[in-house]
Structure formats: C-alpha cells, structure tokens
Design a protein around this nucleic acid. Structure first.
Length: 716
RNA sequence: GCGCGGUUAGCUCAGUUGGUAGAGCGCCACAUUGACGUUGUGGAUGUCGCAGGUUCGAAUCCUGCACCGCGCACCA
C-alpha cells in the first residue's frame, strides 16, 4: 500500500498536481482521444459550449456551479466513449466591461471616456480584459473543468468577428436588420441605448399630479412627470367617453411654463377612461405608448429632453435636469392655480441594469432586428423560428415549466435594438459615403466612414454554439459538434441568451443550437440571501477550493440541487463533502491493506455476487439518472452507497470474515472489495474528479488515467 | 393585471410512471486506541400549507383558497 494513505487526504496538495497530469495527457482534446484509440472513430459526438464568463473580474459560486454541472456531463460522456468536446471561452460583455473600466478610470484619474478618446479607452479596456481573462482561466482550472483549451474562443476575436459580420449581413440582406428612428430605452448614465431586457424595474414612491395646461383648457390630465408636458401635442380620450366627446378634433393653444404648446384632442381606444381623469396627455417623443398614438393620429413629435436627461425647450426650463424642471413646473402650476390634485402613489420606474441610470425614453436613429417580419423564402418570422423548436420538442428546456416563461416572453417580444453608443464591442459593420451604404465588409475606395456604434453584446453571444466551431467556415469541428448536446446556464439569462441563440441559429443555420437546456438556479448563502459585494457574503470559489478542495465544492453544489431551483450553500455543507473525500481515502486504505496479494481470479461466493449485483444496480440507476439530467440524485446515491453501504456495512462485515478461517470467503471478499472500489471510483469520478483520480493511481493495474477509463457497463 | 414556482422532520432540501414518508446537517443516548484527527450504533421529532374531489389507495392527479418567492407587463 502507498504510504500516502497513512495521512488524511490533502486536497490542496493533490488537486493542482492531478490537474497538471490531465492537461499533460492532452485528453481534454477529443482529437487526442481519437488518436490514442480511447474514442472509437465512429463514436457519436457530445458537445457543450461553456457559457463564456464576462471578462469583468473574477468567477463566483454561480460559475462554480455551472462548471461542476457541465463537467459531470462531459466527464461521464467521455468515459462512455462519446467524442466529447467542451469548449471554453470568454465574453467581452460590452457594456458591463466598459462601465467597470470607465468607473475605475474616473475614480483614479478623474477622466471620462471622452477625455481619453476611443482608441485609448479601447486599449485600457483590452488590458483589463486580458488580466481578467487570465484570472478566469486559472479559476476554471482550479475547479477541475475538463475544457479543451486548444479551442478557446473569445467573443471579440477574429473568427467570432467574422461570424458576427456574416450574420449581420445576411440579416440585413434579408431585410430583418433595419435602421429606424424610434423610441429607444436611453440610459443617460451609460450614455447608450439598451434593449428591453436590460431594464430592471424598481418600485418607488412618486407623486401623481392632476392639472390643466392652462385656465382655458377644458380637460384635466394626470402625470407623474409634469416636466415632460412641455412636449405634449395632444390629449387622448377614449372614443366612447361622453365627457370629452365634444372636444375631440379641436386644437387648443397654451403657454405651459413659458413653452408654447399646441394640443389637439384625439380619440384613441388605448386610453382607459377609468384611470385618473380618463384623459391622457400625449408626449410622443418621451413615451412608447404616446409615440404609437402619435403614429395613429399623425401628430408631431417634439423632443424636449436630451441625452443628458436635461430639458431642451424655450424659456427658463432649458438646460435644467428633469428632476429640477419637475419641481419648477409643479411650482408654476401652483402659482397659476392650475394644480388640482397631488397624490402619493407607488410606481415602477425603469433602470438600466448595468448602471442603475433612470431610463429616459427618447426617439433615436438606431439599428433594430425585426422579429415579426417574414424571412424571405422561409415563410416565417424570427419569432416563429424561436417558438418552433421548443414547441415541437427538438429543444427541451429543464425544468420543463420554463418553456411557458419562454413562450410568454416571445409573445411580448418587440424589435430588438442592437446598436449601442459604447466603444467596446463589435463595431457595426456598416460603412457610409454620402447616400451610399455598404454592409458586412470594408468597402474599397476613399471617403467611407464606419458606423460609430457597436453591437449589443448578446448579438455575438447568440452565435456562440457555432462561432466557437469556426463557422462560417465549414470546419470539421462544425460538422462534427453542431448542434451541441446541452446548454447549461442560469435561468436568469434565458431571454438574454438562450432565446437569442435559438434565434440566431435558426436564422443562420436553419437548425437548433442545442438539444437540451439545463437551467441552474442561483447560488445563495446559508440564510438564503443572494450573494453580493455589498452584503459581503460572497464565497470565492478559489478560497473554497483551497480550504476544502474543489471536489468538496463540486459535490456541495450538485447534491440536492434540482434544475431551476435556487440553492443555499454554506461552508458546513462543503465541509461535509471534504469529509467524504477523506472517507473514500480511508475506505481505500482499508481495502488496499486487506487485499494485498489477493488472487483476482478467485470466484465470488453467492452472497458476494449478490453484493456485486447491488453495485451493478446502482450503476444502472446512476447512468440513467445522468442521462436524464438528474445528477443531483446520482451524486447522492453514489455518496450513500460509498459511505453507508460499503464503509458502514460491507467493510465492517469484512472484518469478521478476515478474522475467521473460511479461506474461500476471504478470497472472494477481497475480489469483491477491489471490484466495488474500482467501479465506485469510476462512477464517482465525474463528480469528484480529483480524489478519485488520486486514489485510482493506487488501485489501477496499468498506468491509466481514471478520466479516460471506460464507464462501467454491466449496467446495460 | 398575466404567468410560473414553492409550502414535506428543528434547519436545508430530495421524493423520476399514485402503492404504508427520505437524506444531509442538527439534537439525545451509548460505544470507540478503531481503515477514519473528518468514527460507529441506536433513538426522538412529520395530520407532506388549508378545504374539497377522483381512486381500492394521494406528498404525488383535479378544483378552490391562503401565504412566500420569481418573471413579464404596467395607467399616463
């Protein structure tokens, strides 16, 4: 027996060494597996793309969970003989990364992006991204992830950029990408547009003011934003509202807080006669609903608020912040005796997810993806393209009830605004020269200028399953590994990412990006709170791995954690699995000590055969569980068998046998124990790869890695 | 407002097609120079949120209700 077993298992000393052996073997790369005959030439492919972490800093426990889950599937499939590929990569995460770097520069140097200029800012962000990338890569390795680093990708690298340009051009040519002047979600803090999905709502107290534009104006209106009323062009009432019928079609002139306005009364079905006064002040330039009303009634659209959330009007309001202007307008209404009512209400305000800036709806010329337009020669829209594969079962979402959430989102989906006024990201591949426009590739000749904006970061993320495989080249990888088998990610990005991948793949390849979507939940602390910087309750995967071992962290994250459900994690739980690693260590120590020189050809007694059959049944069970994505059960079952069957019962029973004088029973028991241990290590390996690999060195017959051993198949 | 999920032991959660309630942690008692610093054995605690229904049989299926959480939309 190896002397190492005389001391307790030491994950800190073991894990980095084991990882190095795996890397040196080259077997994370499926090509090496083929070359060395560990995967058969005709083997079926199994592929996963790693959801690329943002290059904004460090990994957290949510990433650790993602890695643990994906590695379980990947390692299992690899052992089962599949041609298995797990592709790593990172995401440039446009707005997120740029705002982190901008904040830092502003804090340290007091400079804005405009002080630095585009080129210098991009250089700074690039340096930050590189550093962040290296941290992330080392963290991924610490967790034991068996990713094929030879295929690493970055959303902003050359190959991925080519994919982005290709898809952009195809969509433009199909008429799905268009440039239009529409109301967008403007983030005054981040100085950029954002998509509907990048908005978060927060409930705040507000005042609802009821007033008239002027003394002569016949109708009262209500609003929480009186300062926008200088941009009003109409009052809309319900067509059947008898109170206001006589005014419909008439136009009234007024001077509202020094700003001359002209208000037409229009009848529109969208107006709820029961709300407030039943009359709606229409501000087309600063409200989506009002913009649509203006469309229907052919009303002008006067912009009164600029990109800095400041007023742009005649008179003393000009240049004031909207909050200031609001107070001034209310004051003016009071003085003029126009204010009729002031009520406290609570309302949801829209904030930009990344910057917490209050969203200001503004009309702007931006690039959009039309989700409703019929795709030429396909007879369906992008929306339908997103719905179909989930509806007809080509894609399964786990847990299944999330498909309702998915469908609901698509039904409410509006055109996707894809242009951003930030610098870090894929510059929109469109060039202008006078009235000329070129899309997709740099045009020849002088005088061309490229669009200043960049693409929404999720545009490139949407291509991830095939851009990572080298598309648009028809590479061997692309042909072999696409569509991927599984997408494992958090349920919080089902819209951002999962839906966009289905959209992009449906459009560009007329195919699905993956067959199964496994949505994991949030990792919370022991009290059930979200982990956050401000609470200081973050667990750092690196510290956890250092203290308890990555194996322990992986098990703690997997056992009992069903898809779609949030999980609580505490050091106590992780510690329990550190103990389990040590338990395995001691089980091995006992078995190796007692079986030295055992005759492996000795037949099993009937009772030992029955015990062996128990493990076979467990293997069948666990294999099915993993196939059906119930890894939380599989892990628990293996744990239970190892500790409470093998250690507590079988080893205890063996002590009696080895003291006795039934030589045949002794010999049989030795063979049994070794066989149980060996197969147990195999099925536990995907969950706790390090300790099982380390033990394997002392159990194996040749010089093989457990990582590439054949999955026990007595099961089938 | 629309939709989704949860409610099972003190705590955290499993329970895959309906067949006499499970795990981990915690708690209590006992044992222990033991393969085990990280051990074992035994034990207590549940009207499976509430009310109905289907069924020979319901934690599981159906209906309604309550509370908690989440998503989407949002009324100006």
């Amino acid at each position: 027996m190896d002397d190492k077993f005389l001391k307790p298992y030491d994950p800190q000393a073991t894990e980095p060494r084991i990882f190095q052996e795996w890397e040196e073997s080259g077997y994370f790369n499926p090509d090496r597996m083929l070359e060395d005959g560990l995967t058969k030439p005709g083997a079926k492919a199994y592929s996963i793309v790693l959801p690329p972490p943002n290059v904004t800093g460090r990994l957290h426990m949510g990433h650790a969970l993602m890695l643990a889950v994906e590695d379980v599937f990947v390692r299992t499939k690899r052992m089962q003989g599949y041609r298995t590929l797990w592709i790593p990569g990172t995401d440039h995460a446009a707005i997120a990364t740029q705002s982190v770097v901008e904040k830092e520069i502003s804090k340290k140097e007091g400079k804005s992006r405009h002080d630095l200029g585009r080129e210098e800012l991009l250089a700074r962000i690039g340096a930050f991204a590189n550093e962040s990338h290296d941290t992330i890569v080392s963290q991924l390795k610490v967790m034991g992830a068996s990713l094929d680093w030879s295929r690493e990708a970055f959303t902003l690298d050359e190959t991925r950029t080519r994919a982005v340009h290709t898809v952009f051009k195809q969509m433009y040519d199909a008429g799905l990408i268009y440039r239009g002047n529409r109301i967008v979600n403007w983030d005054p803090k981040g100085q950029t547009t954002i998509s509907d999905d990048e908005i978060v709502h927060e409930e705040r107290k507000a005042k609802l003011y009821t007033f008239k534009y002027s003394k002569d104006f016949p109708i009262s209106i209500s609003t929480t934003r009186p300062e926008t009323k200088v941009g009003d062009v109409a009052v809309a009432v319900h067509p059947d509202d008898t109170r206001y019928k006589e005014f419909v079609g008439k136009t009234f002139e007024a001077v509202f807080c020094e700003v001359p306005i002209s208000i037409r009364v229009v009848a529109d079905k969208e107006v709820d006669p029961a709300f407030g006064t039943g009359a709606l002040g229409v501000t087309p330039a600063h409200s989506q609903i009002d913009w649509d009303i203006a469309d229907r009634h052919d009303l002008p659209r006067t912009q009164v608020i600029n990109e800095y959330a400041k007023m742009m009007v005649e008179g003393r309001l000009n240049g004031k912040k909207t909050s200031e202007a609001r107070d001034m307008v209310v004051e003016w209404l009071r003085e003029e005796g126009l204010l009729e009512k002031e009520e406290d209400i609570s309302q949801n305000i829209s904030l930009a997810e990344r910057t917490s800036g209050v969203i200001e709806p503004l009309p702007k010329l931006q690039w959009f993806i039309d989700v409703n337009k019929e795709i030429p020669e396909r007879g369906k829209s992008l929306k339908e393209l997103m719905l179909e594969p989930v509806r007809d079962g080509r894609i399964t979402i786990l847990p299944e009830h999330f498909d309702k959430t998915y469908f609901h989102w698509i039904e409410n989906l509006r055109d996707w605004c894809i242009s951003r006024q930030i610098w870090y990201g894929h510059r929109i591949p469109v060039w202008y020269r006078g009235d000329e426009i070129v899309v997709g590739e740099v045009p020849d000749g002088d005088g061309w200028s490229q669009d200043e904006d960049t693409l929404d970061t999720w545009f490139s993320s949407g291509l991830w399953t095939f851009s990572t495989l080298g598309w648009p080249e028809q590479t061997e990888d692309f042909k072999t590994y696409h569509p991927t088998a599984l997408l494992e990610t958090g349920y919080d990005i089902i819209f951002f990412w999962v839906a966009r991948m289905i959209l992009m793949t449906g459009f560009a390849l007329n195919d699905i990006p993956f067959k199964t979507v496994y949505l994991h939940g949030l990792v919370r602390d022991a009290q059930g709170r979200k982990m956050s910087k401000s609470l200081g309750n973050n667990l750092d995967p690196l510290e956890i791995a250092d203290k308890f071992g990555a194996d322990a962290a992986r098990m703690a994250l997997i056992v009992g954690n069903t898809p779609g459900t949030d999980t609580r994690i505490s050091e106590d739980k992780i510690k329990g699995y550190k103990n389990f690693a040590n338990k395995l260590w001691n089980i091995t120590r006992y078995i190796l000590t007692e079986t030295e020189g055992a005759d492996l050809s000795h037949p099993l007694t009937d009772s030992d055969q029955a015990i062996r059959a128990e493990l076979d049944a467990l293997i069948t069970d666990v294999t099915t569980d993993i196939d059906e994505h119930r890894i939380y059960l599989a892990a628990e079952k293996i744990y239970h068998f190892a500790w409470h069957r093998l250690a507590d019962e079988l080893i205890e029973e063996s002590k009696g046998i080895f003291i006795g004088n039934d030589e045949s029973a002794k010999a049989s028991r030795k063979v049994l124990l070794l066989s149980l241990l060996s197969d147990l290590l195999k099925i536990l390996h995907p969950f706790m790869p390090f300790v099982t690999e380390e033990i394997w060195k002392s159990v194996r017959s040749g010089d093989t890695l457990l990582m590439v051993e054949k999955w026990p198949s007595s099961a089938v």
